[in-house]
Design a binder for these strands. Structure first.
Lengths: 227, 227
DNA sequence: TAGATTGTTAATCGATTAACAATC
DNA sequence: TAGATTGTTAATCGATTAACAATC
């Protein structure tokens, strides 16, 4: 029985989740003309603890910050992109060209993160051999073969939950090593494959629960109050 | 300065994130004819610790499990849905009818979680006064007014990052108390408003980083190995 | 009964925050 | 220099896991 890993490349999952937030924030600051920035300033804007910011930045920054000055924004952005591997483009295949699949195929913003969707698969004959967002849609039986031949490393699953595991297995069979799963279901994969769940159900549950609580308590509420 | 809350209704965020996973799993089991199920069985299938499963279920279950038997699947599903507030439908407004916005408007699966998108807003005159997924699209200047009049509590943001904060402020101004944010940016909101980030950038960063590491290390890799 | 499974208390683990000396 | 800010070590906090008595 294998351990579930919490670390990706020596960095905790929690830290990794914050990095894109810093990245986006720093890019905006840089566009606005900010040249250097301090950890307390970042912490204030992003509502984080300043020590946490310093520790997070220490994970990625090649050069240390300077007391009284802070960090050089431009260098920080560069180091962060290198750390996250945004410059090594990975090609991805998407399976399931429904409305969500179409939205993802049409979305231009992924390349910035080093991911490019190059082709899609669908079981519906009417969608096969068309193009969506400029990306060709192939029939399912070409999946393993095309993924392997094109050396695709990322699979994006946007099929209904009941087909997700099967699609996942086939992607892994085609040599895919990282899965971005939009189906609201748990996927079982071999150890060397990473599953990243984009779990909308989780968000909805949190929203729903929050509003439910607020209504129940009849207004604003804090966890300190015990009723 | 306010504390960021980690608890929603006396339950830890981590636990809350697992509940939809149990819910989906249990529904499948129930469809397959399973009447009772034990914590170890769930833990095995979902790759969790069995004590964790028991603790999580204890948070939601109205009736205790029975030694040697486990829990009644049907009751568990019912309790979980009640706990998460899936039966109290909340109406939502979506802002930004781009490809992602359209996909969400067309998606039928939200109602199951107690969320119903009833209308949308967009700044593009060509989209205004059309319907997408059967939901009317209104111009931006109607936002606050319509949200308030219709007693909308959930706002869904699918606009580009640079407009997200402004849209967020207006939704809050219209009485929205929970925001589902798809823009890759940090939103600042009053304390009584919950922001749920559906942060694709985070997922992409994790995928990208993982593949980057795997390639660097020349194959499979574990965090135990120090090179 | 025997043993699988429960719920709970205690131990462990990891992540966050506080404290502080170093430094530009 | 003085003080803002750094990086790091120690303390705290919360979540996970292990241990175990209760029970059907």
């Amino acid at each position: 029985m294998e351990e579930k890993k919490n670390l990706v490349g020596g960095i905790s999952r929690k830290t990794l989740e914050r990095l894109p937030m810093y990245h986006h924030y720093l890019e905006r600051k840089y566009r606005e003309g900010t040249e250097t920035i301090s950890a307390p300033a970042i912490a204030l804007d992003l509502q984080l603890n300043e020590v946490q910011v310093r520790k997070d930045l220490a994970m990625v920054a090649k050069t240390a910050g300077k007391p009284k000055l802070g960090y050089v924004v431009k260098d920080l952005i560069r180091d962060m992109e290198e750390f996250l591997g945004f410059h090594n483009t990975n090609q991805a295949a998407l399976v399931g060209v429904g409305s969500l699949g179409k939205a993802l195929l049409s979305y231009k913003g992924f390349e910035q993160y080093g991911v490019e969707i190059v082709l899609a698969f669908d079981s519906d004959g009417r969608r096969v051999n068309t193009k969506t967002g400029g990306k060709p849609v192939f029939p399912m039986d070409k999946l393993e073969n095309l993924c392997r031949r094109m050396n695709i490393h990322i699979g994006i699953i946007t099929v209904p939950a009941e087909y997700a595991q099967e699609v996942c297995d086939r992607l892994v069979g085609g040599g895919v090593r990282a899965i971005w799963n939009f189906a609201p279901t748990h996927l079982t994969v071999p150890d060397h494959v990473l599953v990243q769940n984009e779990n909308m159900a989780v968000s909805l549950a949190a929203l729903s629960k929050y509003l439910y609580e607020v209504d129940k308590e009849g207004g604003q509420w804090t966890e300190e109050e015990d009723h």
